[in-house]
Write a protein that binds this DNA or RNA. Sequence first.
DNA 1: GCAAAAGTGTTTTACCTACACCCATGC
DNA 2: GCATGGGTGTAGGTAAAACACTTTTGC
Lengths: 230, 230
Amino acid sequence: MTLNTYNKEDKILLAVDCIIFGFDQEELKILLIKRNFEPEQGKWSLIGGFLKKEEILDEAATRVLQHLTGLNEIYMEQLHTFSKVDRDPADRTLSVAYYALIDLSQPDKNTLLKESAKWFTLKDAPKLIFDHNLMVERAMARLRRKALSKPIGFELLPEKFTMRTLQKLYEAILDNKLDKRNFISKFNSLDILIKLKEKDTSSSKKGAYLFQFDAEKYKRKVEEGFSFKL
Amino acid sequence: MTLNTYNKEDKILLAVDCIIFGFDQEELKILLIKRNFEPEQGKWSLIGGFLKKEEILDEAATRVLQHLTGLNEIYMEQLHTFSKVDRDPADRTLSVAYYALIDLSQPDKNTLLKESAKWFTLKDAPKLIFDHNLMVERAMARLRRKALSKPIGFELLPEKFTMRTLQKLYEAILDNKLDKRNFISKFNSLDILIKLKEKDTSSSKKGAYLFQFDAEKYKRKVEEGFSFKL
DNA sequence: GCAAAAGTGTTTTACCTACACCCATGC
DNA sequence: GCATGGGTGTAGGTAAAACACTTTTGC
């Protein structure tokens, strides 16, 4: 297929790195892996891999995540492309960063394929290789910005959740306390949650009503330009 | 420097494409160029070029813009990386899109180096090659989103401008009419403009006060997490 | 009966919105 | 003196923010 038109141009290695956020009903976590090849073998890193010639970026990100953790059907979003010339000392490599949010209360998502992969709370995360810390910072900023205008984070919760859990998630993302009553009435007014008859009694004697995300309603609202301010 | 670690990985061509928005006090425009090489020679395209091995993306974007238009010291921002496998029929090529805003009232920015480059109003822009129309759409969406929460667009204006001009810019970006009084009091309350004693008499007999962007104040506010809602 | 978490409303305040008239000047 | 664009303020509604007590139940 190649027409030889671009023969003189440089070809470059393209990596994909994934910032995987998880929420375990209490804290926001991030998935890291101990690198098992040079350079920087043995250091902690984001999960990543190289883009193959016949692949699009979204596929590569999905493949990398699936391969190193067994996780699949995870919603990922492209974040930014990092290009500092010496960011990887082994070779000139660009990296396209992706980020995702996953629900750690589902046991199958909590168990990781590789021994070398591990969940860290954001505060305890070690220093990472290359520019990976920068990537995490940027992903965190994006997550925060999105959380303020979109009901992001349904990917980070089990199918059924309590208002308390939802609020804790938002508090973890935004890193501040929110008022319980205002939070609830805000989400009620958005009209994208279904209140179930069931209760969750795992964390209290009284039990808390479970809610579900109304994906249909939300989709319709998004099409009309839905967004809110928390 | 290469450690041979990544020898088996694919290397890929990386392009940089620039969506250059301009504002001439009346309308929002976009800079396009008639392509003078294959494939798609003679068709309209964004300005673009290939990333060189020793270059970072921001530099490549700047170089491409400078080389094809003579424009320099333009603020650009990375938008998104496009990776559809057959987006360029000549060879597998990824493209990192950048966007910029420039002020067309300064005569030196209005004159273009190459005959083949031309400013189009958004409505009159022709169909573009590859996925460039998609890039423009996405850049436009980003610009709109940013305009609603940041005093973007100071890059699109001369150093001194009237409130009327600023409002017209916002109307062009958001594609709707705004109320004069509300707009002015909004911007006044943000406290990032300096009202000058000078007036601009080019568009009226009475003359309109000129304003300047207070970069210092704005920087301080940004550090404190400044943002607004228009 | 008390500890622990759930649930629930009201008041105040800030901001957004809609709206219309006078002013200064050049011709 | 009139046409053209420039400048200005207020009132009403909506949404955000602050705030405290009662309920349920297991122990």
